[in-house]
């Protein structure tokens, strides 16, 4: 019990500290908070797919980040080749809603199918050997990362948002990116709601919930568990793909994003508990806010610790694991 009390006190201290800083400059506080929440939305879309696959199949897909990045590159390439949209932020042919949505849909579906392919060819026949499956997906991610550098180069590229959407929106005296605030957060909320409903209200969701608890029993009841697995992998990869296009538009498409977003997904699900959708949501918000508050507020008088902010993320992970080894919402398998 003692660690929990300590953790609670620590949490209070952090809130008080941020409150104090916020009092000094509300404008910065709101921007920093929005930075954290919009990043959290992106993390959630990536991590939801990751945690879904894990929850049902106990597969830790270490190639999840590679799927994320590959989707970004596919959408970027399609936008350029089919619609002549260059990666320039403003010059060149402006992107339209169609020339943003069509690459998004295609890239997302292609990545979903790539996930199914990966599961059927490499993972299906060694079900239950979860470490071996993790090693296989690590190997795939190593190959994909190198091939993406070979084919798409090392320069960051950017998917263009439709020109009819505004660059930024102003409210409460602050100005904030429209795409981040409206599209990404909106997508995360819609996806979260759909996944929640699908899992709670549909037959597929029922099977998944049952599968998470007892795979053998679900199979014994006559459910085609292989089909369910393929379906879950499709949706999980699909979410990585969707996040890749959203992230490629919101931030950029660049080498290294694969391992960065894999690590972010791992942190999110370690905090939230592997296999739990609610956990992924909480974990994303925690990671996003810690990231952005620490980058700005880790200053005490003249001592500036913001350069060490990135370490705080991992201290968060260790703190959570010390109290709950399976994450906030994790359950023993």
């Amino acid at each position: 019990m003692a660690p929990r009390i300590l953790l609670g006190l620590l949490g209070l201290a952090v809130v008080a500290w941020i409150g104090n800083k916020a009092g000094q400059d509300m404008r910065i506080f709101w921007i920093v908070t929005l930075n954290g929440l919009t990043l959290a939305a992106l993390f959630f879309v990536v991590a939801a797919g990751f945690t879904l696959i894990f929850g049902l199949m106990r597969v830790v897909n270490m190639a999840h980040g590679s799927l994320y990045l590959l989707a970004g590159y596919i959408a970027f390439t399609l936008q350029g080749n089919w619609y002549g949209v260059s990666s320039n932020l403003l010059s060149g042919t402006p992107a339209t809603v169609v020339s943003w949505i069509v690459p998004l849909v295609i890239a997302t579906i292609v990545i979903g199918l790539a996930g199914v392919f990966m599961q059927q060819v490499f993972l299906r026949w060694n079900q239950g050997q979860d470490l071996r499956q993790a090693l296989i997906t690590i190997a795939i991610s190593v190959i994909l990362a190198d091939q993406m550098v070979a084919h798409f180069g090392g320069i960051a590229e950017s998917i263009q948002q439709p020109a009819v959407w505004p660059d930024s929106v102003s409210f409460l005296g602050i100005r904030y990116g429209f795409f981040r605030l409206v599209v990404v957060v909106g997508a995360a909320v819609v996806i979260g709601a759909l996944l929640f409903l699908a899992i709670k209200r549909t037959r597929f969701g029922m099977i998944i919930r049952a599968g998470v608890d007892d795979r053998a029993m679900v199979s014994a009841l006559g459910v085609n568990i292989q089909l369910v697995f393929a379906g879950a992998f499709f949706i999980g990869a699909l979410l990585a793909g969707l996040a890749g296009v959203l992230g490629g538009t919101m931030i950029a498409v660049q080498p290294g994003n694969d391992s960065a977003f894999l690590l972010d997904s791992l942190i999110v699900v370690i905090i939230g508990g592997m296999g739990s959708l609610g956990g992924a949501a909480i974990g994303s918000v925690a990671l996003g806010l810690v990231n952005s508050y620490a980058d700005v507020y880790l200053k005490f008088g003249t001592n500036d610790f913001t350069n060490y902010a990135i370490l705080l993320t991992f201290i968060l992970v260790v703190a959570v694991l010390a109290v709950r080894p399976l994450g906030l919402f994790g359950r023993p398998a």
């Binding site: 106990r58 830790v60 979860d130 470490l131 993790a134 690590l263 791992l266 942190i267 370690i270 592997m274 350069n307 060490y308 990135i310 370490l311 991992f314 992970v317 260790v318 694991l321 010390a322 080894p325 399976l326």
Partner: peptide
């Protein structure tokens, strides 16, 4: 810290150790 975890959880916690060490020496 890691000894209470098994299998895939152990793999991920130990990955976190390596990443922490990397960022520690990169930033300090």
């Amino acid at each position: 810290i890691a000894s209470r975890s098994y299998g895939i959880y152990f793999l991920m916690i130990t990955l976190a150790i390596s990443v922490i060490v990397f960022y520690f020496f990169a930033q300090v």
